[in-house]
């Protein structure tokens, strides 16, 4: 209530002395810029070609990719003193969908202090305490729901759906749904007795940059698709099959490999129009 009347007062003063705010502009020297994050999906060093059985993974599976839908969250900048800054705290997660060009850009709303940054890190998926079932009410995000029976109260949404086909041992084109999210801990009879968080943080290599006053940096984050299936684990679709949401072992391998999946495509300054 106090706050409200204070705002009322200021508003009132501004009506009375409409021009007085001009002199106040030069205050303390806080300078800031903006960050826009873009996403690109690569395979074998070139932009991913969809729906084409032209790739071979480390296990020797021939595969093609139909679509990739995933969440990135908690972008953190580290300045040269080692202090960290979490961007857009209240809007911490962004959905990327290779079918929807609008999702290939994430405009960070925060004003970001203009200074030198030594690294950018990100979370793949959404951290458990923030990953609440039904927190997204609208598509497309809502369609990423990770079913309650498989993830409980801290497993709200898929981290990623990577859908495609591989050529199986019968030489048939078979679908795979490489879906990552919260895993299940099971007892001897297969009953679920707990959940396992599989999200991970990734500090992006070569992500240092300097932000100047009033500058907008465009940071491109690249996903290298083939890396999901190698280093440290050679992932074979013939072993794990079409579906892995109920296969913690396969999801663990995928998420371990995921540490090498993301990199910086480029960091550029957005030209001033």
């Amino acid at each position: 209530m106090k706050k409200l009347s204070f705002i009322g007062m200021i508003a009132g003063l501004m009506v009375f002395f409409g021009s007085c705010d001009k002199n106040n502009e030069k205050g303390e020297e806080s300078t800031s810029g903006k960050v826009i994050i873009q996403f690109e999906h690569y395979a074998d060093g070139a932009p991913l070609v969809y729906d084409s059985m032209m790739y071979v993974n480390e296990a020797g599976n021939h595969y093609e990719v139909t679509e990739i839908q995933w969440f990135i969250s908690d972008i953190v900048l580290k300045n040269k003193d080692g202090d960290t800054l979490l961007l857009d705290k209240d809007d911490f997660a962004h959905y990327v969908d290779t079918n929807l060009p609008d999702t290939w850009v994430w405009e960070i709303q925060d004003d970001i202090p203009a200074t030198e940054y030594q690294s950018i890190s990100m979370t793949f998926g959404i951290k458990g305490e923030k990953n609440k079932p039904y927190m997204f009410t609208d598509p497309p995000e809502s369609d990423m729901l990770w079913p309650y029976p498989l993830g409980g109260d801290e497993g709200g949404y898929h981290y990623m759906k990577l859908n495609g086909f591989w050529v199986n041992t019968n030489n048939e084109r078979q679908p795979f749904n490489f879906h990552l999210g919260v895993g299940q801990e099971r007892d001897g009879e297969g009953n679920i007795i707990g959940f396992i968080q599989n999200w991970f943080e990734s500090e992006l290599p070569s992500s240092a940059f300097t932000l100047s006053d009033s500058e907008t940096k465009v940071i491109t984050i690249r996903m290298d698709v083939e890396n999901w299936w190698k280093d440290p684990n050679t992932y074979d679709h013939n072993i794990h099959g079409s579906k892995v949401m109920q296969n913690q072992e396969a999801m663990r391998m995928g998420c371990e490999n995921g540490r090498n999946v993301f990199s910086i495509g480029s960091i550029t300054t957005k030209p001033v129009p």
């Binding site: 009410t137 609208d138 729901l145 079913p147 309650y148 029976p149 749904n177 579906k243 109920q246």
Partner: peptide, 26 residues
């Protein structure tokens, strides 16, 4: 039935489930 629908056992939710509308409209 709910557990089947909302898991990969029957796997209906990916296309019909996600939102409470029981469809993705995709």
């Amino acid at each position: 039935g709910y557990d089947l629908f909302f898991s990969e056992d029957a796997d209906c939710f990916h296309c019909h489930g996600g939102s409470v509308l029981m469809t993705t409209n995709e």
